[in-house]
């Protein structure tokens, strides 16, 4: 068996390299590195500066407190506020006035802000006026895990775990089906079936090749963006298991179809259905419906994140690895059975 598996591996590596699979993997990984390093900004937070003007009528102490730390954002006139706002399309303006000893506040908007932003600004000013007497700002924040580097990660590097999940892991999903259909089209699988080789080795070889490509892609993406930081061994284990599962699922879907053009749409659709909510959850962590937590890419994404940017949550890594060992084994058995059924039907 080792001789046969090595023969299958050499064959699959050679045919996939000569079929430009390796080249595609490297080019896509390098494009992602370029995208992360040079296109996606390090800081993606959108600043909305607020320009203030305090009229001469103001004597209210609380009103004066609002602009206490605003420095250069305090302007001399309402006209100057409007002029500054025209130069900065994301800015807002606040005119603080006093009529009959009562604060009068005017909020100037660009006109396209949603009600939520305006309400937030209103609330902030109200809080400053009525609930924030001097001294209340002295709230001390104590961090239980001062070593956590969460806040130090630039925005572009933050999306590296997502890229690792989408490219090296899910790449196998489509590529393995393509590899399988090429062989089906050439009829080489028939020649293999009249040899003593069995189907489990045949599938295993392809899954291993996809895993190797996944690991290569992971190394290019992570080293090219965040360098050698993080737990690289854990990362490679996670990517390997994720790739095995993705390849098996890709093969199972492909087993229901006769050619790549028939299988491509279901494979791509499945890929979108699985990855879109996971991507959403990545950018909006509060989005975590129960069905999402059942999808394997969900825990995998957070485990990959933990491996690349460790916070000391070893439990997450080990649990995910355990879970994916089970997923990989079960999916592999289903894949072999699906192909046995499929080939017998032919």
């Amino acid at each position: 068996m080792p001789n046969r598996l090595s023969g299958l591996l050499i064959k699959d590596i050679k045919t996939s390299i000569r079929g430009y699979f390796l080249l595609i993997v490297i080019i896509v990984a390098l494009l992602l590195v370029g995208l992360i390093n040079f296109v996606i900004p390090e800081d993606a937070s959108v600043e909305a500066p607020i320009f203030y003007h305090l009229t001469e009528n103001v004597s209210n102490k609380q009103l004066k407190l609002i602009i206490k730390d605003k420095g250069k954002d305090i302007l001399k006139s309402k006209e100057e506020v409007i002029k500054k706002m025209k130069d900065n399309p994301t800015s807002l303006g606040v005119i603080l006035d006093e009529v009959n000893n009562k604060p009068k506040i005017e909020i100037i908007t660009q006109g396209y802000e949603n009600q939520k932003i305006i309400n937030t600004l209103k609330l902030a000013i109200k809080e400053e006026l009525y609930f924030n007497p001097e001294g209340m700002n002295n709230i001390k924040i104590i961090k239980l895990k001062p070593s956590s580097n969460k806040e130090k990660i630039p925005f572009n590097d933050k999306i590296v775990p997502l890229m690792v999940l989408l490219e090296p892991v899910l790449m196998g999903f489509v590529m393995i089906a393509a590899l399988m259909f090429i062989e089906k089209d050439q009829g080489t699988i028939e020649a293999y079936r009249v040899s003593p080789g069995n189907l489990s080795e045949y599938i295993l070889s392809k899954v291993i090749v996809m895993m190797l490509y996944g690991l290569l892609s992971t190394l290019i993406i992570t080293i090219g963006t965040v360098g050698y930081s993080g737990n690289i061994v854990m990362l490679l284990i996670l990517v390997s298991l994720g790739s095995i599962l993705a390849s098996n699922v890709g093969l199972i879907i492909a087993s229901f179809f006769d050619n790549i053009s028939q299988a491509l749409i279901p494979i791509v659709l499945t890929s979108i259905v699985i990855t879109t909510p996971v991507m959403l959850a990545f950018f909006v962590p509060s989005f975590s419906p129960i069905y999402l937590e059942i999808l394997p890419p969900y825990p995998l994404m957070f485990a990959i994140k933990e491996a690349i940017f460790p916070t000391g949550n070893t439990g997450l890594l080990l649990n995910t690895i355990g879970l994916f060992i089970v997923f990989s084994l079960v999916s592999y058995i289903i894949t072999v059975l699906a192909y046995k059924r499929n080939l017998i039907k032919e």
């Binding site: 064959k11 050679k14 045919t15 000569r18 079929g19 050439q186 009829g187 080489t188 028939e190």
Partner: peptide
């Protein structure tokens, strides 16, 4: 049918 690996 010539069912060999064309890339080999």
């Amino acid at each position: 049918r010539a069912n060999v690996y064309k890339k080999l």
